[in-house]
């Protein structure tokens, strides 16, 4: 069986190299089908470079393995699982959602929500005292009764004078 597999790989590699449009090759798996899966995998030999574009020999072999597995009828999920089992979770583009790895998905939203909460609270703290001293404060508050467009032009002219 294994020997047969090997011969099959060889045939497929050769087929891949010599047939023009591999779509029509017998039992053919196109480069595009291989790349669609390879794109989502990362080979440890060239770190942080997706498998579909990594030029090393090891990665070329991986792509051929995907081709072989596709021709055997394995699904995308099965192939990915095979690679995880054989080479570890690092082959995936992001950590699997299990155990400790949940941290990477949970922590940023918590921080962002925390930041938003702090900002919102500060807004409220900053706006509240304002209502008390509103009488002393706002020169722009006085202008707000006039129509917006005029206010804009007025503000603008004022600024122009200032800039001269």
């Amino acid at each position: 069986m294994k020997k047969f597999l090997f011969i099959l790989t060889l045939t497929l590699v050769l087929a891949g190299l010599f047939t023009a449009t591999t779509v029509f090759a017998q039992g053919g798996v196109t480069d595009d089908e291989v790349n669609a899966i390879a794109k989502q995998l990362y080979c440890p030999v060239c770190e942080n470079t997706p498998l579909d574009v990594c030029p090393t020999e090891a990665c070329r072999q991986w792509r051929e393995l995907i081709r072989l597995q596709l021709s055997e009828g394995m699904t995308e999920a099965q192939i990915k699982q095979y690679f995880v089992d054989n080479y570890g979770a690092r082959v995936l583009a992001e950590p699997p959602r299990t155990g400790l790895h949940w941290l990477i998905y949970i922590l940023p939203p918590i921080f962002i929500l925390g930041g938003a909460f702090i900002l919102f609270n500060s807004f409220r703290a900053w706006t509240k005292p304002q209502s008390v001293e509103a009488g002393t404060g706002g020169e722009s508050g006085a202008a707000s009764s006039s129509p917006e467009r005029d206010e804009y032009v007025a503000r603008f002219e004022e600024e122009l004078k200032k800039r001269k």
């Binding site: 597999l5 090997f6 072999q61 051929e64 393995l65 072989l68």
Partner: peptide, 10 residues
Amino acid sequence: YVDTEPEARS
């Protein structure tokens, strides 16, 4: 290390 079985066998 980081190899495919068919190639490793050959």
